[in-house]
Amino acid sequence: MRFTKDHEWVTLEGDVATVGITAYAAEQLGDVVFVEVPEAGKAVKTGDNLAVVESVKAASDIYAPVSGEVIEGNAGLGDAPETVNDQPEKAGWFAKIKIADQAEYEALMDRAAYEDFLQSL
């Protein structure tokens, strides 16, 4: 699993990256009440808006941590947005992206580096 400074996590199987937000991010957001996930076929570049996650108080954009084509949004979050709080780094994933360049994944932080980053905040 790799991480971004925007508190997203990414796992890679073959050329398919699964993207979600970290437990830290989920805790910071508070109770998630709505998630807008991308539709399959959407092309994204690193830093593009990928999804929107809403708490009682505010809407937060989730940015694509890697470039590629979305092959699936997590439809399960439609009826159960609280999954993002309950299992942020498992069932609470947002989207699967067929990545264009594996080097983008390799360049992200590993868990140790992310933990160090959290300590620095």
Partner: peptide, 12 residues
Amino acid sequence: PVQYKDGVMKEH
């Protein structure tokens, strides 16, 4: 304070 430890939903 925008929220305490319980968060907006529980506080509400």
